[in-house]
């Protein structure tokens, strides 16, 4: 069985500039190096089988969302390779909606840009509207939506285009219980049909219920990757330990991490 997603030695470097002029100089003078490096991801490698459900865990700033974005192809990696078997779709809170257009127009626009033709769009539109439970709000401009409504719309669109690989970035934490349940049911359907899914969430409960594998990121590096029952208990233990740290210890911990992330690992 071929892999669904292969991530090989991915690095993501950001540049931190203290002044705007540094940014300009860095662009104009390619020979010299201006600004500080910051590695949001370092040497990340893992692979995923078809039908796996993988959760990304880690404390804030560990690079979970960055990794999800790279796998989805929204942002490019600095180094390394990401191979996907099929089409990936990222769901994040209000990702890619035109605030001035109505919900319905957003659906049409999004589907159009994904390459569907007129008849396909017309048939999918109704399903999406029904799933989103937006009712008559669907013909109101998106800027009048609450954050829950936006993520419901985004989620409904992404899930109905039937992607091969689905990445969900905290998008479920906004809807109410019933919508979250409905989404989970839909995702279980996906799971049964053998699709690959990624979860980024702080909710350990959801992870336990749903994921099969866990990728634990710590400051841009893979700390652990493996079965839920193997990784999650250790992550929980770490979290408890982290919570108990005094302010000073936490600060030191972060400082140490920052030092690690400012230079490339070999």
């Amino acid at each position: 069985m071929s892999k669904s997603v292969i991530v090989e030695n991915v690095y993501k470097k950001y540049k931190l500039y203290s002044k705007r002029s540094e940014r300009m100089l860095d662009l104009l003078l390619p020979g010299k190096d201006y600004g500080e490096d910051f590695y949001a991801l370092q040497n990340v490698s893992f692979d995923v089988e078809h039908g796996d459900i993988v959760g990304f865990v880690g404390v804030n700033g560990s690079g979970k969302s960055t990794l999800a974005n790279i796998v989805a192809g929204v942002i490019p990696q600095t180094e390394g390779e990401v191979k996907l078997d099929g089409q990936a779709s990222l769901i994040a809170v209000n990702a890619g909606l035109d605030k001035k257009l109505t919900g319905r127009e957003n659906i049409e626009l999004k589907l159009l840009m994904l390459g569907f033709n007129k008849t396909e769009i017309a048939s999918m539109e109704e399903d999406i509207i029904e799933f989103s439970e937006l009712g008559k709000f669907i013909d109101q401009p998106v800027k009048s939506y609450s954050s829950g409504m936006k993520s419901r719309l985004g989620f409904s669109i992404s899930i109905n285009i039937d992607p091969d690989i689905l990445l969900i970035d905290e998008a479920l934490s906004v809807g109410d219980k019933t919508f979250a349940q409905k989404s989970l049911d839909k995702m279980k359907e996906f799971k049964e049909s053998g699709k690959t899914m990624f979860f980024v969430s702080h909710s350990i409960g959801q992870m336990k219920e749903f994921c099969e594998k866990i990728l634990w990121l710590e400051f841009g590096e893979v700390k652990m990757y493996g079965d839920v029952n193997e990784v999650l208990p250790q992550y929980e233990e770490f979290l408890n330990h982290y919570k108990k740290m005094s302010k000073k210890e936490k600060k030191d911990f972060r400082k140490q991490a920052l030092a690690k992330q400012s230079a490339k690992l070999e």
């Binding site: 989805a72 929204v74 942002i75 990222l90 890619g96 909606l97 840009m113 994904l114 390459g115």
Partner: peptide, 8 residues
């Protein structure tokens, strides 16, 4: 922001 990762 809206258009990244589209099929065009």
């Amino acid at each position: 922001k809206m258009l990244s990762k589209m099929n065009f």
